[in-house]
Design a protein around this nucleic acid. Structure first.
Lengths: 344, 344
DNA sequence: CTGAAAGCGCTTACAG
DNA sequence: CTGAAAGCGCTTACAG
């Protein structure tokens, strides 16, 4: 109950060494004898000592502050990212400074520069889409501030990067639908110009080819990641003489739109039509039946990103500057085996 | 471009005063002559000086760190709260430490205590539902850490509190439906036991009475804030011999479920049935037609909350310890005037 | 491998 | 109304 903050001095005293030596152990420097190290470590444990970030930062060279700069309309994504990043940062003795920006505004670059200087940020975490902003990367380079990009398009701008394999995830979903017996599979694309859009399409196409299934032009709809695009895609598909028996949308919102279109045309999901999404966003569980989808390990991604960044700051370095993490196929009620008597 | 961090010493030098006096101006203390003050303020502006939070914190008494502790599944709400809080905190020279917790876990209280001690938090911001946790309030009181509750149920636990008038918001929405000519108005409640649920019901009831409209028991459905509850509510309403011509759901997800039920029963929104939600959450714009709803000034609420908290920390004090902010009625496509020939 | 000294940018008592 | 001094908890050179 009566916890009190312990200091480096108290640790040093308990271990019978100088403050400097205690500091060396805390900071995992070399040149400490094994015996001294274990003595100090025992004292640290006993006093449950954690270095004061404030004092460290006061010294000047480092702030032990990492910025999470975001301009992303998807709050669920951001909060998940935040959870992973906070956890890892705290683990390594860093604080996280969250900064929401509006990338379309001119003063965004100015604000960012000010934030970096003012708060003396050691490094910055860059989720999409801001990770693909040349202006932002230019400021970071000008300020010589290290950064990690999350799910960036390719190796744009260099630097550290953590992401997921969209191509193989989309291929996995496509194979799932094929495995359920579907051969007429529709696909709804995301917004043109974003890297996920083309990579998810690529995964769909490669799996279709792999299974020897035809990709009919009328089964591909150019969407934009909105519910309404899914609704329109569904209306168009269901007007066809022979509509697809399964549709894979590039995200969950469009899949929800497809489900709405299905209901409006009197079709039942998944009995009459299987629908699959991507992202495992909350809407995938908000509608009925819930959506089969792809889950990204968002927290793991941001944890890894922080970890790469801190290794860089400590000049430990990283084996790979680009890390790709795995995804999960989540099967729920919106997809089902194609019943032979249902096909026309 | 070549900005550099300016220090209190540089400000003092430029203004021709001691560091201590410069500090007094920065901290808005009394006992500084008008002339000296304006000199120092000019120097501050010229050097665009901002105090180093780290150095301040190193001194010990204050950390200039405010914790935002949350356990809320609604990410959009949290991110909005975050925007307002970050903005205001930065404005006042504070940093925000974000801490996601899981209130059902036993170690949550332990983690919170540790966070407060470790990071030496000056104060804490408590959004719902954690603002109603007796355990959390107990830790805060034990640590003598000031806090502000957001949208707390009544004056539970004392302390500072900022929220919105749910009763009057629900009444406003009900009047809107009555003004459109609806007399048979259904209502879908939220989850039993939460304070918003009873307050929104209360607002509905009082406005109905005010307009002399009957509240039929079969027009009230006990929901739980989920999409599915809205779906089930709709199915039940539409089975009635004379269903309502307008339905007001206690949140947007349930309203979206109602819309889905309407479509499935072959009804058109808003021509056959008007539907209204509450919260102005993203789903209200994700479905078609978009929902008429109530918008809470979430960012303004968290700004005000931070401002109250900091006044408390500075021992300036606040006029009111409980602040209620206003809401907006957002009319969109899901509600329409009741056409005489449509009523049966 | 270990330590005594100086200093980070600020604030808190204490004087005048 | 204003200032010189001491110190916050740590780190960075510099010695030995």
């Amino acid at each position: 109950m009566n916890e009190k903050k312990s200091t480096l001095a108290s640790v040093a005293k308990l271990a019978g060494v100088s403050i400097k030596t205690a500091s060396r152990v805390v900071r995992r420097e070399r040149n400490v004898s094994e015996k001294t190290r274990s003595n100090v470590e025992a004292a640290i444990r006993k006093l449950s000592y954690r270095p004061s970030i404030a004092a460290r930062a006061a010294v000047g060279t480092r702030s032990y502050l990492i910025g999470l700069v975001f301009d992303n309309p998807n709050s669920d994504y951001i909060v998940d990212l935040l959870r992973g990043a906070i956890h890892q940062a705290r683990e390594e003795g860093y604080h996280l400074i969250v900064e929401p920006v509006r990338s379309q505004h001119d003063y965004m670059v100015h604000d960012l520069r000010r934030l970096i200087i003012q708060s003396n940020l050691d490094g910055v975490l860059l989720p999409p889409p801001i990770c693909d902003s040349p202006d932002v990367l230019a400021v970071l380079k000008e300020q010589k501030t290290p950064y990690v990009k999350i799910a960036s398009s390719e190796s744009f701008g260099g630097g550290l990067s953590v992401g997921m394999d969209d191509v193989s995830a989309a291929a996995t979903m496509t194979r799932h639908l094929a495995d359920l017996g579907h051969t007429n599979i529709g696909f709804v694309q995301g917004r043109e110009g974003t890297s996920t859009t083309s990579r998810r399409l690529e995964g769909f196409q490669s799996a279709m080819q792999e299974r020897g299934l035809a990709i009919k032009p009328e089964y591909i709809y150019e969407g934009d990641y909105t519910f309404k695009a899914g609704l329109l895609a569904g209306e168009q598909f269901f007007k066809l003489a022979s509509p697809p028996s399964a549709i894979f949308a590039s995200n969950d919102e469009m899949a929800a739109g497809l489900a709405m279109a299905a209901f409006r045309s009197g079709r039942s999901v998944p009995d009459d039509i299987s629908i699959a999404g991507f992202d495992d966003s909350p809407i995938s569980r908000m509608i009925w039946p819930p959506l089969t989808t792809i889950r990204q390990p968002i927290q793991a991604i941001s944890q890894k990103a922080i970890s790469l960044l801190i290794n860089e700051l400590r000049q430990i370095g990283n084996e790979d500057s680009v890390v790709t993490l795995h995804f999960d196929l989540i099967t729920r009620g919106s997809t089902a085996r194609l019943e032979p008597d249902m096909s026309y």
